[in-house]
Design a protein around this nucleic acid. Structure first.
Lengths: 124, 124
DNA sequence: ATATTACATTCCTATATAGGAATATGTCAA
DNA sequence: TTGACATATTCCTATATAGGAATGTAATAT
């Protein structure tokens, strides 16, 4: 209760998605709802393991569940991944900057080596 | 050695980013390199804690470090976040679908309630 | 050489898994 | 009611933190 060693996987989508099998499950359930057994078969995981992962995903809102007879149909709730996409998107302009700086340096080096044959120069 | 209870935070960017303080550090270091002391002051964390988080971030390539005199200057390596952005981006079309379905249903309901006053109908 | 500054590492502890095995629960069919 | 089928939960264990406190280490100034 005092000091949490590590955030619970159920605390938020970031933690839930840190686990590779959960990511695999989310992809598998993205386009349509499926029963647990199909996940087990497709991803070759143990059934209790899948149930546990689904529980985590459900608790953070990353999957929805609907009962149908004896089956439970799960499906990815894509909107819950949007905050993650937007968080990482904050950094997009920085990696673009880095890439363009690398490109500029490469072009400058090309130019220095062979000033007349660069096909991408604007003034050609 | 046998069964890993939980993936190491150093195993990949997904795990490293699951920790909120590490996300805060990454944002703080996104636009320019800064010494550890500045992170400590700005985010109000203990210095050993910051050093440990920086170690994790460094091991998965999310930050770069450069020594300058007594200081160590850290900076976010934005490109290392790109795989996360792309992974979450896989789901973008699904949350767009869901949103448009919600919108369609809402519009259909509006239409049913009040067939002549919907300002967004194309055939008006 | 020594004190100081700036970080990093170690030790210790409580917590949170994730997997495997076994078992429980819930639903439908006959 | 009795099975059978589909999932969920519990128990147990090894592992991996994250925080706090204390200490170690590297670089610089005097």
């Amino acid at each position: 209760m005092a000091s949490m060693a590590r955030a619970a996987t159920t605390s938020d989508a970031f933690n839930a998605v840190a686990e590779p099998r959960r990511r695999a499950i989310l992809r598998f359930l993205a386009d349509r709802e499926r029963p647990v057994g199909e996940i087990v078969a497709a991803l070759k995981l143990e059934q209790p393991s899948v149930s546990k992962h689904l529980k985590v995903l459900h608790e953070v809102g990353l999957v929805r569940m609907r009962r149908q007879g004896r089956c439970k149909l799960y499906r990815t709730e894509a909107a819950a991944l949007r905050p993650l996409h937007e968080w990482t998107g904050q950094f997009e302009r920085f990696w673009r900057q880095q890439l363009s700086r690398v490109k500029e340096r490469a072009e400058a080096k090309m130019e220095a080596l062979n000033p007349t044959t660069n096909p991408n120069k604007e003034n050609l």
